[in-house]
Amino acid sequence: MNSRTAQKPKVGIFGLTGCAGDQLALLNAEPELIALAGRVDVVVFDMAISRKEEWQGMLDLALVEGSVCSQRDREELEKIRKQSRSLMAIGSCAVWGGLPAMTAHIPVKQLNKQVYDDGEVFPKAMGAEPLSSFVTVDFSIPGCPIEIGELLEALAAILAGGEPQRIDFPVCAECRMAEQICLVQSQNRVCCGPVTVGGCKARCISYGRPCDGCRGPVDDPCYDATREMFFRHGLAKADVVDALRRFSTPAWVERNLAADFAGDPQRRGHHRSQTKESGT
């Protein structure tokens, strides 16, 4: 038993700042967890293992969820990277920055003041960033939460010595494959499908909800045309911009679309705080 355990790849599952929803998704996948435990030796699982001794050895694969929101997160991530042969970002916080990065274009000082009114609560807080801002990420499984099937298939592919299937088609494609009715066309809703990575089989649209873009942008998103389409449908610019950047602001900022994120007074948090400041 021991010798067999020793031969199994060692896996650590870590959580930085986030809701831990991706670790929870993995914990909820009970039958698959047993199969996973048969193939790998899970030596760290932040959410599931209460003992807090630090793992000292080398890991074959680290799964990391959450975004980097503080100096502590960053140090922990760098330590995980040094200890792992491969690193996989799981969930949109880790892959794209996720919801915490929604304010990536606003200085942290300003956010701190707006929320806590002084800089003392989180002195080392940083603007939320995806893992890739600090370390090399070998594999990414986006989603809020992750599609558990996609994660398990990726793990299985890696364990079999292959590469995980890479998805670079937008949600629109899967939405049409599933024979759904387009919510932009039929209901004038803001739907992030055209620019968002598929793989969810248009889950939200199949329940009558537009895509929130939780899986982040495709490699080559057609941002301008998407925005124009929504304007043509008479949708407010602020709603469109907010929806498109909700889960993946750092990616959009990097693509120099930041100008679009700064110009909507009634929606921008920092503008509200400026208004408040000028009022006092």
């Binding site: 698959e32 199969a35 996973l36 048969g38 193939r39 398990l152 298939e153 793990l155 299985a156 592919a157 364990l159 079999a160 292959g162 299937q165 088609f169 937008p170 629109c172 494609a173 939405c175 049409r176 494959m177 387009c182 499908g193 055209p194 620019v195 080559d220 057609c222 045309a225 998407t226 389409m229």
Partner: peptide
């Protein structure tokens, strides 16, 4: 064009497909 592929999915004569493996944990 968004290159979203909607037109090709609904096209009665588009026949392109991708082939890939869905691997289970037991290999």
């Amino acid at each position: 064009c968004f290159a979203c592929g909607a037109c090709t999915m609904v096209c009665p004569t588009c026949t392109c497909y991708d082939i890939f493996d869905r691997v289970e944990l037991d290999g």
